[in-house]
Design a protein around this nucleic acid. Structure first.
Length: 215
DNA sequence: ATCCCGAGGG
DNA sequence: CCCTCTGGAT
């Protein structure tokens, strides 16, 4: 099967069996999504959603958050992974929004990654979700699933390399969908440990299944 | 024990 | 390239 046929197989499968998200990050505006995605690193969405409503009630705008002290904000995200780093990131990020971006969340990847706590993955999520840009955020799920299915070459050892190959091979108009498919498939079926291959309709094209599970 | 929609610094 | 941060769920 050619690479193109493989991608088409994956597209056909997910168009028929689109995975449903059990939880989505809660947000009402770009600023809130930015905060939620920063908090979501190494943490479940459910846990993030437990903290953000209270956080947003106290810090509804970049201005409010920029003026918070470390000790004021820290307790609100205490139960999130890396609360020390993320407290600094949120306050620094809010300050940069005000000073460099007129209090608005910028909508290009290059601008977003300048913000403290915002890397390429987060920038791709923001521009994709808020502005419908055909960007592919490669997180741990997308990275793992892409490699197992063989959507990417074994030489793609970095998230950026995976991102470029996925962007190149998925039709532009499907990038946004594909991002969601791969993440949810990774979250619910193609688990890092003990993947639920019996529930997966992609085993016939899956390198991981062929090499690790079947034998 | 191992993983969760990573980022920053050395 | 490596390491560190670092709480909660399973």
């Amino acid at each position: 099967m050619t690479r193109k046929e493989k991608y088409q197989f994956v597209i056909n499968y997910f168009e028929k069996h689109a995975p449903d998200a059990e939880t989505e990050l809660l947000y009402d505006n770009p600023f809130q999504l930015l905060v939620a995605v920063i908090l979501s690193a190494q943490c479940t969405d459910k846990r993030v959603n437990l903290t953000t409503p209270v956080l947003f009630a106290h810090y509804p705008t970049p201005y409010a958050m920029a003026n918070a002290t470390f000790d004021e904000l820290f307790p609100f995200i205490r139960s999130i992974s890396y609360p020390n780093n993320k407290t600094k990131h949120l306050i620094g990020m809010a300050n940069m929004l005000i000073h460099d971006f007129k209090g608005e969340v910028p909508m290009t990847v290059d601008e977003l990654v300048k913000l403290p706590g915002v890397g390429r993955k987060t920038a791709n999520v923001i521009t994709s979700v808020i502005d419908a840009q055909p960007n592919m955020a490669v997180d741990t799920h997308v990275f793992r699933v892409s490699h197992r299915l063989g959507l990417t070459t074994t030489t793609a050892t970095t998230p950026l390399a995976v991102e470029k190959q996925l962007i190149k091979n998925f039709p532009t108009e499907l990038i946004h969908k594909a991002h969601h498919w791969l993440i949810l498939h990774g979250r619910y079926i193609c688990l890092a440990r003990n993947p639920k291959c019996p529930q997966c309709g992609l085993t016939e094209i899956c390198n991981y299944y062929r090499k690790v599970i079947k034998k």
